[in-house]
Each structure stands twice: as structure tokens, then as C-alpha cells.
Amino acid sequence: MAKKLLLVGGGHSHALVLKHWRRHPLAAVDLTLISDVSQTPYSGMLPGHVAGFYSHAESHIDLPRLCASAGVNFGEDKAIAIDPERNLLTTQKRGQWRFDYLSLDIGSTPFIDDIVGAEYGIPAKPVPQFLAAWQALLQNIDQHRPEKFTLAIAGGGAGGVELAFNVQARLAKFFPAIELDVQIWQRGATLLSRHSAQGRKLIEKLLAKRNITVLLNRPVTTIEREFSPDDNQLTCYKLESNDHWRSVNAVFLVTQASPAPWLAQSGLSLDSRGFISVKPTLQSYSHPHIFAAGDVATMVDEPRPKAGVFAVRQGKPLFDNLCRFGLGKDLKPFIPQSQYLSLLGTGDGKAIALWGPWASYCQCWWRLKDYIDRQFMEQF
């Protein structure tokens, strides 16, 4: 009798598992992918999509089509609970799914629990909701054509900085007559604290050149609606941080990553932030028949930032170990690289390259980033 394997979530690691499964399926395993979206975004292209370089189709993977090509079942549903002892997954639509073993790649969302009025902000994830809000915002600006538009981005990590560059470029291109004020509100005393001093200096210089305001030691703590929209004006909000208030037209939330709340009741071994603790084999420390990859997983022995590059690198090792587990073979450890090249698109046909202490900014890095991202998407 075939074993039942569930892939929960359509993240980068699982997309790569499906690609390899298409070439090397296991007859002894019945594989099903469950995802709350049918079109899963590729994080490497999302800033470029915001800036207008890529269409929705170019920056998203068609999961039902990928599953069909791999002979894999697809269910569009959202996971809300798991019982690893009884091997049951609970979802919103179908209810319960039985499995013999399972892999989670459900990503993360910005942590907003400490922001009063967070419902007035626009979280960068889940991506489909963010992109819908972004398109609505563009239409709203186009309709009202204000003299000035102020956008705040809460979060000064790589995601917040790259989003700031690409949002500013798109708005400046589409609405040249509007005075733009793009702001980054950073909780800490520095931007991109994981990167080198040279890299931070380069980025700060570019932000200043693009008139993107950086507010350090300014965590967004409160969002209040100042007044409702009418026929002549855009919605306006007030942001508060350390008793400082500013009025803005929109707030993007790109704060620290947080896991799905239901994991806290899963019985799985979690790290201090609530992410799934996994071994180098990508197995749960508490339940070896549960695997996890991407943002939702924390490699306890080899901790790394929550970045798409690691989810991509985990894809093939995850596939190999899922196959080995299904066949009763020994699993192999995955050791991620300690250094990696970060390429941040700046929305102007150029990109910033960051590698260890080294940093550079030019058109050639955008060409490299575009090539890498298109090559990745061509696999699917």
C-alpha cells in the first residue's frame, strides 16, 4: 500500500520538490500538495513586480499546472492545525487529511502583535493580499492625484529597504507631478544590521539620493486613522513611535518574521520565536516523520536568516530526504552555506550586491539578478 505524503504550503522548497518529483517520482508514495493559493509568488521577483519590471505571471508559479505535470494531487486549502501523533492535518475547507509523513513550507508573516491599530497597515505577507492592496493603492492615487503622497515602511531589514526602493521608483515613474515622501521606520539604530558597514553605508547613500527618509530607533507602535476618504483626498493615518507622531497616507508592514499561530498548539518542537526546530536532515526534532523548510523552519545546528536563498537551497536536499524516508533509507544532512550573495533590486534597472564585507551598486548586478531569477522560474 502506498504511503501518503503531504506537502503543506507552496513555498520555494516545495516547488523544487515538485520539479524533482516530476523527473523521479516514487511509485510507493502517494503525494499531495496543499496550498492556500494556486499561484505562489517567487520572492526574488516580487520587488521587481512592484516596480513594474515583471508581470504577475512572470513572478508567480502555477501550482496546479506544476502538480499536474508531476502527477501530484493538488488541493487549494489552508492548514489550520496538525496532530503529529495521530497523523492528521486539519484545513479550512476539507477538514482532515491523513498522512504517513508530511512536510511544511508555509512561510511566515510580519510580526504585528505589538502594533496598536495594525489592521490599518498593509503587511508585506501574505503576498497575494499585499499585491491586491498595492494595486488598489495605485488606483487610488491615480484617481485622486494628490499634491503629496507619504508612504511609511515599518521595518529596515533587507525586505523593507528593497521594497522602499521599488515602491519609490514605481510611484515616481507613474506620478511624476506628485511630491513623494517614502519613509523607512526602523526599530533599531541601524539598517540591515546583518550586513557589513560598507554595505550599510552604500545603501544609506542611495536612499538619501532617492529622497527616501530613514527614521532610526523608530518602531511603529500605533497606527490611527485620521480621517476617512472622500472624493478629493486619500485616506490619512497617524503613526506613533516613542511619542513622535507623523501623518502618512499608507503604511507597509515589513517587520520581523513570525510563524503561523496554530503551530503553538501543534505539539511540534519549536524555537523561541515559534518556528519549527529542524535537524540538518530537515526533520522535526520532536517528530521525525514531520519535515519543514523555508521560513517556517529553524535549522537549530546551522541557524540562518529567514531568506529565500536558503529555501531555494533546501529544495533538492528536502526532495532527497523525503524520498529516502519513504523508502526506509538513511537520511543525509544539509549544511547551508555560511555566506551568500545578496542582490537587492533598486527599481531603476540597477541592483546592490552584498557579499560579506563587500558591496557594489550598478546595472550589471541587476542584469545578473534578472538572469538568476528568470532561470529559476523557467524550471517550472
Rank of each mutant, 00 (worst) to 15 (best):
S241D: 10
P261A: 01
F325I: 11
D271P: 08
N211D: 12
D330E: 14
N211G: 08
L331P: 09
D320I: 11
K279N: 12
R210A: 15
R218E: 04
A250H: 07
S342W: 11
L344Q: 08
L215H: 14
R324P: 09
Y340P: 03
K279P: 00
A260F: 12
L331H: 07
I203D: 01
I203H: 02
D230M: 04
L216F: 11
L206N: 01
V214S: 10
F275Q: 05
P317S: 00
A250R: 09
V309N: 10
N249K: 07
G328R: 07
L216E: 01
K329G: 02
R304E: 09
A264Y: 01
G308D: 03
T213W: 02
W245G: 04
S284D: 13
L318S: 02
G326N: 03
Q337F: 10
L206T: 11
G328V: 13
Q283I: 15
S284F: 11
R324A: 14
K316D: 02
W245Y: 15
A250T: 07
Q265F: 08
F334S: 11
P303S: 04
D348P: 02
H287E: 07
F310H: 08
K209W: 02
A297W: 05
E224L: 13
L263K: 08
Y285A: 09
Q339F: 00
L263A: 11
K316T: 10
P333V: 12
S286Y: 01
V214Q: 04
N321A: 00
Y237M: 04
R225P: 04
T298C: 08
L343R: 11
S247G: 02
L253R: 00
V309W: 06
H287D: 01
R313F: 01
R304P: 13
W245N: 06
L341T: 14
I212T: 10
K316I: 10
W262Q: 06
S272C: 09
Y237I: 00
V214Y: 06
A264M: 07
C323F: 01
P333N: 12
K209Y: 08
